[in-house]
Write a protein that binds this DNA or RNA. Structure first.
Length: 387
RNA sequence: GCAGGGAUGGCAGAGCGGUCAAAUGCUCCAGACUGUAAAUCUGGCGUCGCGAGACUACGGGGGUUCGAGUCCCUCUCCCUGCA
């Protein structure tokens, strides 16, 4: 089901899923409500996207897994015949609880309970419920419900998060096997075609607890191990501290080493192109982030070095709404191969984004995704043009 | 012609003697966003200055007052009734 090779010191994995192969390293955009906002499934194919991530919680709220089951599947519904990964909803619950903590929003051993702020409805998401929804969605890769811990927190909180995540992972796997009518032996039989299951390593900024978390999950046995709970703020923020030799780099490298070589490594929520480059070099295979899509909507474009107005190690940023592009007749990124819109000027895209035009956000989103795919292909010395 | 109402920063619109370089919204300028509850959020936005600060400002002109978008007179323009 998984084959690993190494080319120029970079891992490359081939993963067989019910809907075709995934070739890593690869970046998966986030299709939160069953859509990568602003673009169509055909657009995704056109810019070289092969798989995407969608979120259990949002699908359940916006579409309904029972509806998808009745309709057929997420693949049939969307017309996407390639791999789909469903996130468990753990991060979404975490995110919403931290934005709006109330006595109704809480996480207990049983699961996550919270009030939907739009409908006022009470929601409950347990490890089993998350697996069930993902089962009805019919995704190719499923993630176990976990309890993220992004901020640097006390050791007791870290311990609780790690231990609960491990217990939930155990419950999730049990539910996964039941829903798919598989035995543990079946799970370990590479001849049997089935969706893949991913557990998420927690432990915040603690090397010790990252190791404990990884070992606990590896004991249970999964196809994919994720790195969860990136520190976005605080002392060990990997946003501020993302350079070679930094704490964040040491931590993610360390965790990658804890995962068996023949298992897939998924860095959840990573990252900008610099982050991706480092994570790939330190052995991670799968990535997803909202950056290229959300930023595109805000007129923040990823472009090749020398093309934008702000420079990072391996890329530039173009703030396309800026006055500086008012009379710029060039295409968005003159170094991009086969751009989706070669005749569209920066000046006009600036106008479209400023007017909040759907055509503008679509072009910007396609551009950013295309930049990401070409950036990865460049790192791997693959052809920049997808097959 | 008579009576009444009104003129405030790019626009809309607060302000009813001092705490007004002037609320608020929009526009505009800059920025942020990392398993998306984000078409969201954060700054800036009279002029000069990095800054403290200085200067010029609430239709024009003239008064009252220690002090005036704020009160009085007058002019210009706009709106509403009556002729």
């Amino acid at each position: 089901m998984v084959r690993i090779e190494e080319v120029n010191n970079i891992r490359r994995a081939t993963i067989d899923t019910p809907h075709g192969q995934i070739n890593t390293p690869t970046f998966m955009p986030d299709a939160t409500y069953g859509t990568v906002q602003e673009v169509s499934m055909q657009d995704l194919r056109d810019v070289g996207i092969n798989e995407f991530v969608t979120t259990t919680l949002h699908i359940e709220q916006a579409i309904g897994s029972e509806y998808l089951k009745e309709y057929g599947s997420m693949h049939k519904f969307t017309g996407w015949d390639r791999p789909i990964l469903t996130d468990s909803g753990g991060f979404q619950v975490y995110s919403l609880i931290h934005r709006n903590s109330s006595k109704h929003n809480q996480i207990t051993e049983a699961g996550c309970s919270f009030i939907d702020y739009k409908t006022g409805n009470y929601n409950f998401l347990s490890p089993e419920r998350s697996q069930y929804i993902q089962h009805l969605i019919g995704s190719d890769i499923r993630v176990v419900l976990d309890e993220p811990l992004i901020e640097d927190d006390s050791i007791s909180k870290i311990r609780q998060s790690v231990e609960r995540t491990t217990r939930w992972a155990q419950r999730s796997k049990k539910a996964f096997l039941e829903f798919n009518q598989l035995s543990e032996a079946d799970f370990n039989n590479p001849e049997i075609k089935r969706p893949l299951l991913c557990a998420v390593i927690q432990g915040a900024s603690s090397f010790e607890y990252r190791k404990i978390s990884a070992e606990g999950l590896i004991d249970i046995g999964f196809d994919i191990y994720g790195f969860g709970g990136m520190p976005l703020r605080g002392k060990y923020s990997w946003k501020e501290d993302g350079k070679a030799g930094s704490f964040y780099h040491e931590l993610t490298s360390y965790v990658a080493e804890l995962i068996p070589k023949d298992k897939i490594r998924y860095a959840l929520g990573v990252g900008n192109p610099d982050n991706l480059k480092f994570a790939i070099e330190s052995g991670w295979d799968l990535f997803d982030t909202v950056l290229p899509t959300r930023n595109a909507r805000h007129g923040y474009l990823y472009v090749n070095s020398g093309e934008g107005d702000a420079s990072y190690d391996n890329f530039d940023v173009m703030h396309i709404k800026s006055e500086r592009y008012k009379f710029d007749e060039r295409q968005i990124d003159t170094k991009l191969v086969n751009p989706a819109y070669p005749k569209l000027s920066r000046a006009y895209l600036r106008h479209l984004i400023r007017m909040k035009s759907g055509s503008g956000t679509r072009v910007a989103t396609m551009h950013n995704l295309q930049f990401y795919t070409q950036f990865l292909n460049g790192l791997l010395n693959r052809s920049p043009i997808p097959a």
